[in-house]
């Protein structure tokens, strides 16, 4: 049986035109600032381009040179290490805090707690990095003073290869947990009351309710938070720029920092774009894997 196509009456056409006019400004801006730069970057990655003269086509030269870059593997490893530290911790912390506040602090104290945990999100990142730099100081830094008070020896958090990246990642976690916590909190508050009440009547403990009801319902939110977290973490630049400059040695050098150096310090846009395209491909692959993982868990 054939279904009748909707007729394009004059009225419908006008409505469509008006709708298009409404979204056009946002669409144009998004195209200029989000979509076009991606295609331009892909084009520049096949050129030698220094921002002054017209780009010169060099084929795959930038990619071949990138393949021979001896520090690229190390930098990718650092970036993945950063992602693996930040994304799970900030996601789990945000979920636990949101669940705790939603369950036990449905009063003004809960509201106060949410505000306190959200403060780092609105704090300037560069100022935060500067403050944490002081707190991490090996001599006289607040964290080491506390450690000394508890009988531990001082640690040069940002000066040791083993601790530098986790220390930078800790600041990122501190900075972003509040943001994800608010999203989770809104999700938890939307869990239907009757489902929770039914579970209580059935004798489910708070942990069981969280595990079997809240968590599955929050799966779409978790998917979004993990996606945002991975994309944001792969692009980490500002914290590293301010806190370590990629050091000690290259212990905290990340892909985004490397892109910045090539693009703006050396004015080698083509080479930097090749690296940026590589990063885009890595992020897309991981995103694809993550989507598959969530679909599988959902039984789709």
């Amino acid at each position: 049986m054939q279904t009748a196509k909707p007729r394009w009456t004059r009225r419908r056409r006008n409505q469509a035109l008006i709708g298009a006019a409404y979204i056009a400004p946002s669409f144009i801006l998004m195209f200029i600032f989000n979509v076009a730069p991606i295609f331009l970057s892909i084009y520049f990655s096949f050129t030698k381009y220094d921002m002054t003269a017209a780009p010169q086509w060099v084929g795959f030269d930038n990619y071949i040179k990138l393949g021979a870059n001896k520090y690229l593997g190390m930098v990718l490893e650092n970036t993945v290490q950063y992602v693996l530290i930040t994304v799970p911790i900030q996601t789990i912390l945000a979920l636990l805090i949101a669940a705790f506040i939603a369950e036990n602090m449905k009063n003004r104290y809960g509201s106060f707690m949410r505000s306190v945990i959200f403060i780092p999100v609105i704090a300037s990142l560069i100022a935060s990095a500067a403050v944490w730099n002081v707190m991490y100081q090996p001599k006289g830094g607040l964290i080491n003073q506390c450690m000394n008070f508890l009988g531990f020896e001082s640690v040069n958090f940002l000066g040791k290869k083993a601790t530098a990246m986790p220390s930078v990642a800790a600041v990122a976690i501190w900075k972003s947990t509040g943001y994800y916590m608010v999203i989770y909190y809104a999700g938890i508050m939307n869990v239907p009351g009757e489902v929770r009440e039914a579970a209580i009547v059935d004798g489910a403990s708070p942990i069981q309710r969280f595990w079997y009801i809240t968590l599955p319902i929050l799966r779409p939110i978790t998917y979004m938070i993990v996606t945002l977290g991975i994309i944001g973490s792969f692009q980490v630049f500002d914290l590293v720029y301010k806190m370590t400059g990629g050091g000690p040695g290259r212990a905290t050098l990340t892909v985004a920092y490397m892109i910045y150096s090539y693009a703006f310090q050396d004015k080698r846009m083509g080479y930097a774009c090749a690296l940026a395209v590589g990063l885009l491909v890595v992020i897309l692959l991981i995103h694809q894997l993550q989507t598959l993982f969530f679909k599988e868990r959902d039984g789709q």
């Binding site: 290869k161 990629g246 050091g247 040695g249 290259r250 150096s261 310090q265 050396d266």
Partner: peptide, 22 residues
């Protein structure tokens, strides 16, 4: 000279690596 800043970043990183015994 060409790419001076990145050259100096590289030298700094390598000297830091030397201080770390690498």
């Amino acid at each position: 000279f060409e790419a001076k800043k990145s050259f100096e970043d590289t030298l700094l990183a390598n000297i830091q690596d030397m201080f770390q015994g690498n």
